[in-house]
Design a protein around this nucleic acid. Structure first.
Lengths: 166, 166
DNA sequence: TTTCGTGCAAATTATTTGCACTTGG
DNA sequence: CCAAGTGCAAATAATTTGCACGAAA
């Protein structure tokens, strides 16, 4: 049974990406800007900053978390954050998640499938852990075919206890 | 590859359940009342009505939809709806879903696993379709074991085009 | 110089809470 | 009676929208 696994806590992932100067994120940002430009969009400051911030991220952030992050470098309007996220989502450049706590989270979308992953939310420590599983993906592909359903996005969320929380 | 399938549109399912006088729903309602009673809860009118309404349901409803449904038979306070849903969720009697449109939906939880299912949301016609797939469940079990994660709930959402919407 | 982006504040929407009153056991 | 449930209205929290002004192509 081939199961590929990426298991990264938010904190660890941040430093990993720092260490490798985040080539994947850069690629995403470049592509995102290109897509928006082709669609006839200008390059406003807030949007540019948001794209940079998201590209440094490995896992989902809420709109308010993004706003906070941006504010550390200077003021931003909340509306710009929401509008930019909506725009990115319309162009399928971000994935929008709702993990069951009433807050929408966003993360860079990954058309190549290289960084595709799902989420596991520990109900005890609140940690959000991205994971990837080939068997699961296979099941979903087969299932979609069987149902005659054209699946554009899919999302799997596990809620429970992580290995560190007994 | 054994893949069991239940494919029911909301509308069809409603009539199906009518036709068989909803034995599963009745069982759920009985159990729900028992669980709440054991926990020392009284039987207020709003809560009783909500349990009845949910037990007739095969798939997820939002709090506002539930409120509307209840109002057809008489007035209910919105707060009672939310409080009851919270209570049922605390006792794991309902499953709470967030399918990505900012609204929480609730449906009777199924400890037996008999009616366990996931959701498929057609982005074109908006139809919410419940489905069940053995292969998918197997993948999730294996995955949880491999990650050392104790999965209490899991949720799979597919978004795309249903067979009727080309 | 026109189209798009931004900021601010006000509006919406979903959900929660405080409190006085009613009801179940 | 006492604990729990209900309704109503006001409070939050997340997200959206209208509009005037500033910036990009």
């Amino acid at each position: 049974m081939s199961t590929s696994l990426i298991l990264i806590s938010n904190r660890e992932a941040g430093s990993m990406l720092d260490a490798m100067s985040d080539p994947a994120g850069q690629a995403w940002a470049v592509n995102a800007r290109e897509v928006l430009q082709r669609a006839g969009h200008h390059r406003g400051a807030a949007r540019e900053r948001l794209i940079d911030l998201l590209s440094d991220q490995d896992c989902a952030l809420s709109a308010l978390e993004i706003e906070d992050g941006l504010r550390r470098d200077g003021p931003v309007a909340r509306a710009s954050v929401y509008r930019t996220l909506e725009l990115l989502h319309d162009h399928e450049l971000v994935t929008r998640l709702e993990l069951g706590d009433g807050v929408a989270r966003y993360e860079p979308a990954d058309p190549s499938g290289h960084h595709h992953h799902h989420h596991l939310l520990c109900e005890r420590c609140g940690q959000l852990v991205p994971f990837d599983d080939a068997g699961l993906e296979r099941s979903i592909r087969q299932l979609s075919r069987r149902l005659g359903f054209t699946t554009k996005e899919h999302e799997v969320t596990l809620r429970g206890r992580c290995p560190d929380c007994p």
